[in-house]
Design a binder for these strands. Structure first.
Lengths: 130, 130
DNA sequence: CAGAATCCTACCCGATACTG
DNA sequence: CAGTATCGGGTAGGATTCTG
């Protein structure tokens, strides 16, 4: 199968294409990007409870799940300190940082055009009504 | 609320942040990017049936839904030719092209590291087993 | 040809309760 | 503190059938 993003071509097998799609869906899901972003902002390790506070609206269950996924893909590290009460710290890996760097222009471009898109939707809905 | 992607800060209201999250989720969903990509590759208008063929695995329902969403956000145009049988052509708008251009580096970076991520996952799963 | 409508299933995610 | 376990509502998305 052939994937073309510019004029050059990137060949991917169907399996690879599937993995790419999964990666994109995973990273651009509801919480992963936001969570990584908080970690980048911090610049260092963060405890579970702190992450829970700073990623507004996330549930404890989703935070755990999100962190496990990110850890599995090698985007964050999880460090357990054998203390009582337990302390667990999460930190971005270099891969994690890089992925955010690559994503940033896209993110910013959309953020700067939210009103633009809002208006486009308004026009479409109005048009549709008549 | 404050969103930080580099060291500079971009201030967003909660409503804007919500919209941004929705935009990201929408665009990075299962089909939108792939569909737009096929349109970019084509370089011109494409009929519904052609899109259905080229976006492998998509159902007719999802194709319709995806195209409606993209049209609503002003990322594709929909042109109906009053013929029998009907002909409907879809084409990327400038916004649609721009969004793909912004997304490209991210996409390519991940595509080039699929194996890398696969190995990371394998390591994680192995580690977890013991 | 380009869809609209319907039915059905999987799983995402939140809320809640419990544990080492 | 940092989880795990369980239940249930909502929704994304597939398969199938019908229509202008």
């Amino acid at each position: 199968m052939v994937t073309d993003v510019t004029k050059k071509r990137v060949s991917l097998t169907d399996a690879q294409e599937k993995h790419l799609r999964e990666m994109l869906a995973k990273v651009a899901g509801k919480w992963p990007l936001w969570t990584m972003h908080v970690l980048l902002e911090e610049g260092g390790p963060l405890r579970f409870a702190r992450l829970l506070e700073r990623v507004e609206g996330i549930s404890q269950k989703m935070m755990t799940q999100t962190l496990r996924h990110l850890e599995r893909d090698g985007l964050v590290t999880r460090t357990v300190y054998p203390e009582v009460p337990p302390r667990v710290e999460y930190e971005l890996t270099d891969d994690g940082k890089e992925i955010l760097v690559r994503f940033k222009p896209f993110w910013l471009w959309i953020a700067g055009r939210l009103d633009h898109f809002e208006k486009a939707r308004a026009r479409f809905d109005k048009q549709k009504k008549r």
